[in-house]
Amino acid sequence: MALATPALGTVIGVVHLRRRGRVRDVGGERLTGADLREELGERVTLVQFSTAFCQPCRATRRILSDVSTLVPGVRHVEIDAESRLDLVRRLNIMRTPTVLVLDAAGAVVKRASGRPRKADVLAAVADALPPG
């Protein structure tokens, strides 16, 4: 048991490292400014779910606010998961940080759990931008 537990931990750790922050395509949900209690971005909204007990949330906040300053029309909205458990349940948020990429109409088009890489966020934003 003293050996099996670290072995299990290694498997969990490696899987976690590989999946962390990977941006996936999703669809089906749509969020409004009223849901977020904040205005949607003109072209893209980056919604970040955070909790107080979440170390990678800070780094994620930095990355997303960088991207929102870099790309015009992109807005970063951070939501405290604990105070919005209604949204957490509706969107099935399991951990923090979870990042949702919304297009201009508020449709959720991408999703990442764990701190994403800046390049991946930029690519996801480019995908979500309206054509033209």
Binding site: A81, E82, L85, T96
Partner: peptide, 10 residues
């Protein structure tokens, strides 16, 4: 512990 915190709160 931090990961399961939200699951507990949910």
């Amino acid at each position: 512990g931090c990961e399961i915190y939200l699951l507990i709160r949910r």
